[in-house]
Design a protein around this nucleic acid. Structure first.
Lengths: 344, 344
DNA sequence: AAGATTTAGGAAAACGCTTTCATTTTTATC
DNA sequence: GATAAAAATGAAAGCGTTTTCCTAAATCTT
């Protein structure tokens, strides 16, 4: 076996041709006689030669590498997005590199965002998920993106606020939540609580906007105690619902919970059980994201399939197509056992 | 704002120095007068100039990019490994790119492994997780790795068979399973089933090796019906246990299950419930990996914490250190409610 | 103040490819 | 068989850095 450091010069020398010809053999362009081509290919195979993508990048100005920035991979939901994006990227001959949001805009506690190590990577594009960010972090993200967009095209995904002026694949969170309220109202619920994301955002496409619309449409009295906020982990969901229980007389406890996501819904289940509530008779819970574990909880969790894998794939397609459109994705309810008719 | 395509020549021209000096300012090497340095830095800042990592790679022969190959990201377990690896890599100034195993060695159904798109990337290293592979796939992986190792250092992680001759961070699956059997025996169980990974592997560090040792130590009769194999999803776990129930008279049903991982354990829970078994009174189940959802299942799942995040970080450290050692990681039981004393 | 050091900074090569342009060889045309 | 057109190939420039080598300027010796 010949050592791996072969360059195009080694191949050219051994095949008795110029490097230009080797390059032509490699990429199939130009015109090469059948004999030369065969000889070149033989030498390439013998050396097990792979042209350096980074040298190729020097001339082509392409790296065939995309970046993806997600809040946190530990929510399996994001793993789905990444999987979808990764498959599509590879189908189109690209690598995709994952970065945590934290690495890009730093922690909430940090005074300064971290040094940007992305601008120098000359990525062919960047997919950024803008969810779960408190306002201050969103501002940081905005200025960071503004800088990065000079270097590479950017596509945003998730529940994208309208004031982000980028091509995007978004879902209509407000609409989704409004319809969720209707669904629960249809089951007879009148005390419907929501545990949503950060509240101070100015955009219209928020969970709580849809929630309020739904409550108003159903002509239910609006109670601020039925809205809680958290950042999307099971622990936080548990804490949030515990706090809600603690702050209300049992007669006023909600009979249905709309959870930010399935993790939060899991936390809510735990909190409800601690209070001795029967699920779903005493409390209906609906999650969001339809995690793989949702059907295995007891009761099996009713959720919303936001088609995250498809979302990831779409984002990559949009990015590589170069179009500047903003698209809204579909979603659908996945009915299981955690939501029941309310019987007073 | 000056456009983003600035090169070192633009900076040099505007600062009235040579590109060599700009380079020195950038990397802090050589000697540059304070005045020149200040001037250079000002121009760099004004242009918002970031040297191209790929051009740097041309000379330095380093890409500061690592690759990581995992079976499937959808098991949150692997998301943990990636997170740990990613954090450590960034701490050491590297990017890390994730690839699915499928992209490397193809599907079981494919006749040929896919074209290798990694060799030409000149990564600084590669972390490969070798779990959940049927024998034929393992062979493929071996030859693929043999080729790749000419280009970059490789570290293996997971339950690494001893016939893989690479630096590795491994856990001792056999030992773990043997102790799991002991634990269940200690609870009074005598019919202990195991749902493990692929069976035809020759290595000694396998779940079923440990399982058999444990059974033998406890002087329990060995029954082949108590061993099932699957590839690690909840659905497969459910199917496997259903099949086991179907093949045995109820009096011989196992009273305890050792599941390959928490997903499989979830599937087993579902299968048990379908048969009307009470958990954990009628059937104890222990998982592995301690997924975030384990405490939220009912009963809360007893599992094994294999410290995956740490595993990922360790792998990166080993890779970047250049050492060739093979290390074994720690693990520990996480006792919850899914395993109970057996009362006949 | 003259020589010896040290410091500062420029010129140019090198990294491994792609691509354009020019030249040579082959093939087609009459 | 001479000429035109097409095909095959090589030379060289260029991509954006780093780094070595060298010269010029500044500083230190005595």
């Amino acid at each position: 076996m010949i050592h791996s450091g072969s360059t195009i010069y080694d191949i050219a020398a051994e095949a008795g041709v110029s490097i230009a010809t080797v390059s032509r053999v490699l990429r199939g362009g130009g015109s090469v006689s059948a004999a030369t081509k065969a000889r070149g290919e033989a030498v390439i195979a013998r050396h097990n030669y792979h042209p350096s993508a980074i040298a190729q990048g020097m001339t082509s100005k392409k790296t065939y590498t995309l970046g993806m920035i997600l809040p946190k991979l530990l929510n399996p939901n994001y793993a789905m997005i990444f999987t979808g994006a990764n498959d599509e990227a590879r189908r189109q001959g690209h690598l995709i590199s994952l970065f945590p949001m934290r690495g890009l805009i730093g922690d909430e506690t940090e005074a300064e965002p971290p040094a940007l190590s992305l601008a120098n990577r000359r990525l062919d594009g960047l997919v950024v998920c803008v969810e779960y960010l408190p306002p201050r972090q969103k501002e940081r993200l905005q200025s960071t993106l503004k800088e990065l967009r000079q270097y590479m095209p950017i596509v945003l995904i998730g529940c994208v606020p309208s004031y982000f002026d980028y091509p995007a694949i978004s879902y209509s969170m407000a609409d989704m939540t409004r319809k969720t309220v209707s669904y629960l109202v249809g089951l007879g619920h009148e005390r419907i609580a929501m545990i949503g994301g950060t509240q101070e955002d100015q955009d219209e496409n928020r969970r709580d906007v849809g929630y309020l619309e739904g409550i108003r449409e159903a002509q239910l009295p609006y109670t601020a105690s039925y809205r809680a906020f958290c950042r999307g982990t099971a622990e936080e969901g548990e804490t949030a619902l515990e706090a809600m229980f603690a702050s209300l007389l049992p007669a006023y406890w909600p009979t249905a919970i709309i959870a930010l996501n399935d993790l939060v819904a899991m936390g809510c289940m735990a909190a409800a059980r601690k209070r001795g509530l029967r699920l779903p008779q005493d409390l209906s819970i609906i999650g969001c994201d339809n995690l793989y574990c949702a059907p295995y909880l007891s009761p099996a969790l009713t959720s919303i399939d936001t088609r995250q894998q498809e979302l990831g794939a779409k984002a990559v397609r949009l990015l590589l197509s170069g179009e500047k459109t903003r698209e809204t994705t579909q979603w659908e309810f996945v009915f299981r056992d955690s939501c029941a008719k309310y019987k007073p």
